[in-house]
Design a protein around this nucleic acid. Sequence first.
DNA 1: GCCAACGTTGGC
DNA 2: GCCAACGTTGGC
Length: 131
Amino acid sequence: MKSEPDVFSIEDLRRKDVAGWDGVRNYQARNNLRAMRKADLAFFYHSSVKPPAIAGMMEIVREAYPDTTTKEPGWLQVDVRFRKVFLKPLTLDEIKQIPALNKMVLLHNSRLSVQPISAGEWATLTGILEK
DNA sequence: GCCAACGTTGGC
DNA sequence: GCCAACGTTGGC
């Protein structure tokens, strides 16, 4: 799940502990939000900064419900809870260099703000980030 | 700041 | 239903 840290960062989430992941206005991203289940884990990716990187981890604590920031029907948000901030974020550049991650959506549809991660990719990423 | 990639809109 | 025009995202 991507956010520009100037707008909302992993540190902001740490301060709030629980936050609504709102403002998504893309159907594919919305569908990915809808597929999330309570207790699912997600990475927090900092975009549009140098360097772009996976900065932390969070947990889905409330499944998709109508986005509180719009009156337009159909848009959804989830609630997330802070889990951890990575002292050494995994940069986009590093991700690109790991063969096991070369199919990541991040590398092929970088604009999608809520992306799926395969079980294998998750295992690879946590193996690097949590060592 | 630039620009490629992508999504959306709207005329036909 | 096609596609040109436009707006946005995000890496560089």
